[in-house]
Design a protein around this nucleic acid. Structure first.
Lengths: 229, 229
DNA sequence: ATTAATTAGTGTAGAGTGGACACTTTGTGG
DNA sequence: CCACAAAGTGTCCACTCTACACTAATTAAT
């Protein structure tokens, strides 16, 4: 009685990854220049096909690793895109994922080989197929996610200043935040460690570096995390 | 150069629908008794396979219509479930949708024929495969959705009392709400019409019936809708 | 050595929102 | 006409959110 679904249609399933990074220029997305037809030479998200023996999460992780060399990255499934004519080559349903990476850590050799580039989210080229929709979804989800998870820390280096954290949240939410209110809200979460170490790049006075306290955070997540900026 | 994806694996894609309804006994889900192997006789969500020439939204709408006779129903895509061994028959990825229906409107003949039944969400049988996960996801999403969309009105008859609306939200959120605070929050949304008509079933005094004001609501959605209960 | 320049760092008051709380009104059934 | 049952209605307190401006620390320039 197994294989009783044999009369049903089978389709191609792909994953496409919206990869977010952050540096002093703002919030960015990693895009790749397609080197095959159709739409050769156009910009695209990083994608790949689901193999029969893996889950979608595995496929997304595999694709991310393939293009960036990174592992153990925060990823989240977004949405399945399935319009009949979304891919002109063959009927393909694509499940979009987004990832938050520390822009300093990825393998820059790899992305050069793939003709990949970082684009500021406010200055992106038109993408192939429905990839623009996917990006719009991802940005919406990321904005919402700031209120339920400390997403910011995924995007920053291990040690960072309050100013960097503030500017990251401003970039994600696309609005100005009050410095004092921001700092007191972040401090009230009680998930940061203030280091005895200053970053001297940004000013003459120098600003303290902070780290994310994973233990305190894990304890907090079990109860409740909420951050309204 | 078309059909260049020919070496990739193809898989079965299905949709499974979590169908919510509400009556005076509480929030309910419509389940179906499987009449084929494997897991014949076990309870299951209503599902169907994606056909090559339709989108996932269309497939979900088709499945809902097939089992309930309903059209133009609020549905929302939830999540794609893709563990490799989730379906023992064949490799199948399933995209879960949830729907909100007015429990009085569906075709009761149809659901009898399909051996479908309504179950209170606090008293559900164990479901096949990963359908329990899907339901848990759907309830979480529905709870969140109350704060961003007036989901409640989808689940009630056209005319309803404040008490019904209150009890619906209590059932969705699984907590008691203060009657006065609830009513003032709902009224401050300004999307209800109070009718000159009373429901005399529930009490000797009778309670006013309300309707949802679609126009005011549409206007409001464009700006902002927020309801924190 | 003094000064100028630059960013870091810090607290408070006022407004608005959310939550707790109890009594009166209304109409029917007995 | 009285008893009953649910409907309907407003206030106060606590907390949270937001707006807002000055001092501290250090280095570079002279």
């Amino acid at each position: 009685m197994l294989n009783s679904y044999s009369s049903e249609d089978k389709v191609l399933l792909s994953v496409d990854c919206i990869i977010f990074g952050f540096d002093n220029e703002g919030l960015k997305i990693l895009l790749i220049k397609r080197d095959f037809e159709p739409e050769k030479g156009k910009w695209s998200l990083m994608g790949g096909f689901l193999k029969k023996e893996e889950s979608l999460n595995n496929a997304a992780t595999r694709v991310l690793n393939h293009y960036t060399g990174l592992q153990n990255i925060y990823m989240e499934q977004l949405y399945a895109f399935s319009e009949v004519d979304r891919d002109p080559v063959d009927r393909t349903i694509s499940v979009a994922y987004y990832a938050l990476i520390n822009i300093e850590n990825h393998n820059t050799e790899l992305i050069k080989n793939y003709h990949a580039e970082w684009f500021n989210i406010s200055n992106m080229p038109k993408l192939i197929f429905d990839h623009d929709d996917m990006v719009a979804h991802a940005i919406r989800r990321l904005r919402y996610r700031t209120s339920t998870k400390p997403v910011g820390f995924e995007l920053l280096p291990e040690k960072f200043t309050m100013r960097q954290l503030l500017e990251l949240y401003e970039a994600i939410l696309d609005k100005e935040l009050d410095k004092r209110n921001f700092i007191s809200k972040i401090n009230s979460l009680d998930i940061l460690v203030k280091l005895n170490e200053k970053d001297m790049q940004s000013s003459r006075k120098g600003s303290y570096l902070y780290m994310f306290d994973k233990e305190k955070y894990d304890a907090k997540l079990l109860n409740n995390f909420a951050l309204n900026l």
